[in-house]
Amino acid sequence: MSSLLRAAPEILQAFGETFYMLLVTVPLAVLFGTALGTVLFLARPGSLLRAPRLYLALNATVNLLRSFPFLILMIALIPVTRLLVGTALGTTAATVPMVINAIPYFARLAEQALLDVDRGVIEAGQAMGMSRKQLVWHILYVEARSGLANCVTIVTVSFFGYSTVAGLVGGGGLGDFAIRWGYYRYETLVLFVTVGIMVACVQAFQFTGNTVVRRLDKRI
């Protein structure tokens, strides 16, 4: 029990670090990932924009970034991180590879959510005289909104886990803390409690996400 008390302030700090990383990564991933996913959807052959070369280029880039194991991407991006935030170590530095990994990830999920929009509703929009931009804002995002909200939940949960790897570059966070304090120092109780907190966080993310999706979805 005393081990837990000694660890408590550090658990709190790790908790803060994890949320800091998520609060940077998820909004940026949603913003740029949605934009990228929309372009992927529009440029796809047979869709609303005739741009086969753009599609090939974006598709290949997204696949490339998504194929790196996160740990290797993190190391490979060290020079980029130094350039962007001035250092390759610390919590902020760890968010750079997270964001770069999360954008193409979210783009793929968003593309899929847009593909789920009924083709007929898009056609109805065209028949109303909508421009491409209007189709995106008045039809696609409206009809895909619950799907997109679901994508946000998936990305949040995934990167909650990925943030553990951030410990490697001194990023801190709950997962990193569980390994350093709990595992390496044989403090089993600290390990269990920290992992328990992480499990509770993921449950909370999923519950919140599901509630929002249910509110947004009027299809049933």
């Binding site: 009924d118 007929g120 509703v121 056609e123 109805a124 409206v142 009809e143 009027k218 299809r219």
Partner: peptide, 12 residues
Amino acid sequence: MIFQHFNLLANR
């Protein structure tokens, strides 16, 4: 224009 499957926006 109207359609066989109505094509209304489900979320509106």
